[in-house]
């Protein structure tokens, strides 16, 4: 029965990562690379935290300090990852003359891939080493939690933190980007989102110190579920806003098109040609030039 528990815990802990990998990441090579980069950056964060833990002796005696330093390292590296990701995105879309819904969508997918990578490394390192022991017949029980195996508790916590890590990454990436946007007039919302992400990371991590596993799990999930719902609607709202924004731009362009003559591409200036976008009409035909192969028609 031992492998049954091992695979059970594996599925519980990695379920969000597996699902997102199959349905989103695996479909685009670019996202796969970004995900691996995300995983690498989480490893970098924990490497920094370990070095600090090793150097600063008082950290070794108190779990609370270790957690704090680990969170600070993770969030710091997440910010670093954001900076690098922004540069990467800018490079990929360097030919685009302006932001479109597609670049926005690509940004969101990229941040999701970063989050999945971050989460994957987190679950693998933090829980993988524990989970491997579930291949044997024995389980880990504590006096505070005598009836539920710590493998199961940890699998559920890893599942919870896995989802949250993805959400935190997307929210923080969106928020930082929005804060950089000078035209953005609802900055307070994004500041609040960043604060909430950081605070929840601290809060939930410290809640794992509760020795009673049932209470720890219950409190973690009770806080995480509303957070996840808020995060989901926050991202959804952000995307809808962007969509509305670009839709309105398209509408305005369509109006303008009736009066402004479209600039035709010059044969001797291919590069120029690529940078100029012909805004599609409602009746888009196959011979109309498009910028990206993977552009999806906006309805």
């Amino acid at each position: 029965m031992t492998l049954v528990l091992f695979f059970g815990c594996l599925f519980v802990a990695f379920s969000p990562i597996i699902a997102l990998f199959i349905f989103v990441i695996y479909k685009e090579a670019k996202l796969l690379i970004i995900m691996l980069a995300g995983a690498f950056f989480w490893l970098l964060s924990i490497f920094i935290a370990s070095i600090l833990w090793k150097i600063v002796k008082p950290l070794q005696d108190e779990n609370a300090w270790s957690i704090a330093i680990s969170i600070v390292a993770q969030e710091g590296v997440r910010l670093l990852l954001y900076k690098i990701f922004i540069k990467l995105e800018a490079n990929i879309y360097r030919f685009a003359t302006k932001q479109t819904l597609e670049t926005e969508k690509s940004y969101l997918k990229g941040s999701l891939a970063c989050g999945v990578g971050y989460s994957f490394a987190y679950v693998l390192v933090m829980y993988g080493s524990v989970m491997t022991h579930s291949t044997g017949p024995g389980s880990l029980f504590t006096s505070e939690c005598p009836k539920i195996s710590l493998f199961i508790v940890n699998a559920l916590l890893a599942h919870n933190f896995g989802i949250l890590n993805i959400l935190w990454t997307i929210i923080i990436f969106i928020s930082f980007k929005s804060l950089k946007n000078k035209k953005e007039n609802k900055k307070i919302i994004y500041i609040f989102a960043i604060t909430l992400s950081l605070a929840s990371h601290f809060l939930l991590s410290y809640l794992t110190l509760i020795k009673n596993c049932k209470v720890s799990l219950l409190v973690n999930y009770l806080i995480s579920i509303p957070l996840a719902i808020i995060g989901y609607f926050f991202i959804k709202k952000y995307y809808r806003n962007k969509k509305d924004f670009y839709q309105s731009q398209i509408n305005e362009t369509q109006k303008d098109e009736q009066t402004i003559e479209v600039i035709k591409p010059q044969e001797n200036d291919q590069k120029q040609d690529l940078t100029r976008r012909r805004v599609p009409n409602d009746n888009t035909s196959d011979d109309e030039p498009v910028l990206f192969d993977n552009d999806i028609k906006i309805k």
């Binding site: 031992t2 049954v4 059970g8 599925f11 379920s15 699902a19 195996s149 599942h159």
Partner: peptide, 13 residues
């Protein structure tokens, strides 16, 4: 419990 956890894992995926 082992079987239950396995089923929960599959269900979550």
């Amino acid at each position: 419990v082992d079987i239950l956890v396995f089923c929960v894992g599959i269900f979550l995926i």
